[in-house]
Amino acid sequence: MAEITRAEVAHLARLARLALDDSELDRLASQLDVILGAVAKIGEVSDAEGVTPMTHAVPLENVMRPDVVVTSLPRDDVLAGAPAAEDGRFRVPRILDDET
């Protein structure tokens, strides 16, 4: 099952919002094939059936905090680190497609 094609890597890159160029896709496809071959060893563990998956090392549930209003970070301090800001907000590139 551990085989990954260049087309698959291109699809994954699109899902992960990474605009990879052709040489990167070639390199990643061959490297991922090797890495997946190694991690596929996980399938050999025969006594895993019926075992509860472990998502976390700390068995904590529903950690609550008091429902009180606290001050948040100053808006301008946060916006100062943004690549673009306007009128006290993050400015983003076009989000609607006007061609279709």
């Binding site: 899902l15 919002r17 605009a19 990167e24 991922l32």
Partner: peptide
């Protein structure tokens, strides 16, 4: 976003993002 992430992340980070996405 896709151009930024492709330019801002290095090779190992990209490898792991793709591996994790897979």
């Amino acid at each position: 976003m896709s151009l930024t992430r492709a330019q801002g992340f290095g090779a190992e980070v990209k490898r792991r993002i793709i591996l994790g996405t897979y």
